[in-house]
């Protein structure tokens, strides 16, 4: 086996083993995604009345991002809203942010969130095309993201220029 592959296998099996014994051992990739999700919430304004007392970040299906996110948002309050994390198996009206990890069908979640003030975040090549707002893209080992401003407008979400400046413009939006 090539050393790179071997190392990766060792790393993955180690992290799986670690996850079994200790909840906080997620691979870096998921931790970074969780840190991003937490940051995204800070840079998005929801329309009046869209938020109750808390901001609920939902993760679709079973993903290690959830555990990392739970550690990050514990006792966190942003603009007077407590943060909460939920794992969902189907679209839920209580979600303010929905993260659809790789391998989960995004269309169902995007359809239900359409025009609702929900920040949709994904990590598949066609996530933006399907109507998603923020999509993670990997570039030379770094986790970057693209934002479709038109989709954000439809959802009546105000995204801070600071976040927009750091985002890539998705291919589709530029070509228009």
């Amino acid at each position: 086996m090539a050393p790179g592959v071997r190392n990766a296998v060792i790393a993955v099996s180690m992290s799986v083993a670690a996850a079994a014994t200790q909840a906080q051992e997620q691979p870096l990739e998921y931790q970074v995604q969780a840190a991003y999700l937490y940051n995204f919430v800070k840079f998005v304004d929801w329309p009046d009345g869209a938020l109750g007392g808390s901001i609920t970040i939902c993760t679709a299906g079973n993903t290690p991002v959830t555990a990392a996110l739970e550690q990050i948002v514990r006792d966190e309050v942003i603009n007077g809203h407590r943060l909460a994390v939920r794992t969902i198996e189907a679209p839920q009206a209580t979600c303010n942010v929905v993260f659809v990890p790789h391998g989960m069908a995004a269309s169902e979640y995007l359809r239900s969130a359409r025009t609702a003030p929900v920040l949709t975040v994904g990590e598949s090549p066609d996530f933006i095309e399907q109507g998603g707002i923020i999509n993670f893209v990997r570039d030379a080992g770094m986790m970057r993201f693209e934002i479709d401003q038109e989709a954000a407008r439809r959802a009546r979400l105000q995204i801070s220029s600071r976040l927009l400046r750091l985002a890539r413009t998705p291919a589709r939006a530029v070509q228009q």
Binding site: A11, L28, V32, N39, G141, L163, L166
Partner: peptide
């Protein structure tokens, strides 16, 4: 910060 998150190499084993 987000700027710093963007610089982390997530592929390292």
């Amino acid at each position: 910060s987000i700027e710093q998150l963007m610089q982390i190499d997530v592929t390292l084993a």
